[in-house]
Design a protein around this nucleic acid. Structure first.
Lengths: 220, 220
DNA sequence: TTTACTATACTGCACGGTCGGTTTTATGAA
DNA sequence: TTCATAAAACCGACCGTGCAGTATAGTAAA
């Protein structure tokens, strides 16, 4: 944990290549060079490219789910909780504090990295996406579990993914003001006026630990 | 127009390959075989793969914009018009009548084909996406021009793209009931209660022809 | 014969995968 | 502490494949 293991370094390198040079530039040689090791080193940890993609997917999906869960268990208001926490992950108040990876380094944007990883998976090896199908289904159930605003939360999630897609496709500039406008519009929709000022710092009663994967990770 | 020109056949074949076998299967040989011609025939019409992608993009973007515009000029209600027409294109009342291509054949889903084309473009040749950047910006301006519901329309558009993305990534089954649920939820948001029952069949006054590209195509 | 195409063979290259070899690290007995 | 041994981690050259691109011969119509 203190020093980054090679496998993690490879995953970071892979996504960095994909973001900087495009999905198709994510070759074994490029990834190896970016990670500072040789191609043989990559194939030692990931016997095939399919498994590399799978590994990258695992690596970032876990980071994202942990990041989201950490917020969810701290949110005292059940209504629209998931969508609100998702937005908080996207637009954190103190960016440099929120986007720290477990090695202590700054990762500009965990969610967008996961997004790139998923795109890479969908394009290069659809079979690697199968586990994510279940994860997505579970997440949808959580979002929909909101008694009144289930679909509202889904729509927020969809809009965020749409925005990611626009950026990936180059349909919108990274610094286009509309991006923050959309963010603000979405935030306005998930804001809930709390009846009282009490803030629970424990796990809300309406969330069971059994419902939260990697719960032990959250007690850091 | 009576018989499909070879270039159009190639574009259709390319997107069919991409949908059926994945983006990476969209090779010149595969496209040629799917189109029923030889590889040389493809390179005759499209000297490079980049230009093939560009051609596919042009082909489908024009189809989509025409399809959308045809609805827009028939919609008498300016409020939320663009989002509503976009949704109508996605979920047409009579599917077999709406998704006809100009050759008379049935194309299952023009919008999703355009979506695949854009993904192919973004992945294989980002330069081919540059013209679409402007088209997207113009479209955003049109959506935002709505005096009160500009952002609302954008969010509908984003959610639709997010849904496309989920399907492409295999995050959701094509027949998952949530897809139609999302569609219904979005439709509910763009429904406007008309003050009177009048329906204008002409170009609404708040739309100028100069604002509508390929306007001459709409008088069919 | 010219024009407008089509078909096929070929070239160069970048990729994923393989594998024998090398370095680094861990272990354990003297 | 020192050395011997083995296991883990890593290296990089090599191979086969499939791709985009190119060159060129073939063909049917005007």
């Amino acid at each position: 944990m203190a020093t980054m293991v090679t496998k993690d370094k490879i995953c970071e390198a892979a996504i960095q290549i994909a973001i900087r040079d495009g999905l198709l530039a994510m070759t074994l040689e490029n990834v190896a060079k970016q990670a500072g090791i040789s191609k043989g080193g990559v194939t030692y940890h990931f016997p095939s490219k399919d498994e590399l993609v799978r590994g990258v997917l695992d690596y970032f999906s876990e980071q994202c789910e942990t990041m989201l869960m950490r917020r969810v268990v701290d949110d005292p208001e059940p209504q629209l909780r998931w969508a609100r926490c998702l937005l908080d992950c996207l637009f954190p108040e103190s960016p440099e504090a929120e986007t720290r990876t477990n090695d202590g380094g700054i990762s500009a944007d965990i969610l967008s990295r996961f997004f790139m990883a998923m795109l890479a998976g969908a394009v290069t090896s659809p079979t690697a996406m199968l586990p994510l199908r279940d994860l997505a289904a579970r997440m949808r159930n959580r979002f929909m579990a909101d008694p009144k605003d289930g679909m509202e939360q889904i729509l927020v999630w969809l809009a965020i993914d749409g925005l990611f897609l626009w950026q990936f496709m180059g349909l919108i500039d990274n610094d286009d003001p509309m991006i923050s406008q959309v963010g603000e519009a979405l935030r306005a929709r998930v804001r809930v006026k709390l009846a009282n000022g009490t803030v629970s710092l424990n796990l809300p009663q309406d969330l069971s630990f059994s419902d939260v994967p990697n719960a032990e990770r959250l007690v850091s």
